[in-house]
């Protein structure tokens, strides 16, 4: 009887040891996999109209996209670089449009989408809810909407190669 208990105890210790070894590594690999998958979004992207290029970076755990290039960077009337003249906050209307974060606060989800973010339309000064879906490694579906996702509009963005030295 004592011997049988000893065998059970030994098996239990081995099983616990395996558990304590396996669980953390599983969690760590999940976290790393999630981070890597979310970072696929990083890079420079061009909307379908070709009038701007947007660089997506990560700040903390969320993703943000800045305008880094404009087809028409200057105001045709003044000749000066364009600013965010339609910003609803008047105090920010002189912020340069080039560099403006038009994509904000996207969170990577397990289903491979980036949600909870917003997209800003500098032409109207309006901000919309937005979902990003990567259809292949060089193509994004950017869906802006108000309220209901089904009533939104999708634009296709293409990845640009970064310049090399």
């Amino acid at each position: 009887m004592t011997r049988r208990l000893g065998i059970w105890a030994a098996m239990a210790v081995i099983a616990l040891g395996m558990l304590s070894f396996e669980l953390p590594s599983e969690i760590n690999s999940d976290v790393l996999a999630q981070k890597t998958a979310g970072d696929e979004l990083l890079g420079v992207w061009e909307p379908s109209n070709g009038r701007a290029r947007v660089k997506i970076d990560r700040i903390g755990t969320k993703y943000y996209g800045r305008i880094v290039w404009l087809l028409e960077p200057n105001d045709p009337e003044t000749g000066e670089p364009k600013t965010d003249i339609n910003n609803p906050d008047a105090a920010l209307q002189d912020v340069p449009l080039k560099g403006y974060r038009m994509l904000k606060d996207f969170v990577f989800q397990e289903d491979g989408t980036w949600t909870e973010g917003t997209i800003y339309d500098p032409l109207s000064g309006s901000t919309y809810n937005c979902v990003i879906k990567m259809t292949d490694e060089n193509t994004l579906d950017i869906r802006g909407y108000i309220g209901v996702q089904a009533l939104g509009r999708t634009d296709v963005w293409k990845r640009l190669a970064m310049p090399k030295r």
Binding site: I59, G60, T61, K62, Y64, P81, T83, L92, D94, V95, P96, R101, K104, D105, V107, E116, T118
Partner: peptide, 17 residues
Amino acid sequence: ASDNEAVAMEEAAFVNP
């Protein structure tokens, strides 16, 4: 900015040019 999903990034100051 913040990691909290409920807290959106805010622009707060600038100088241009």
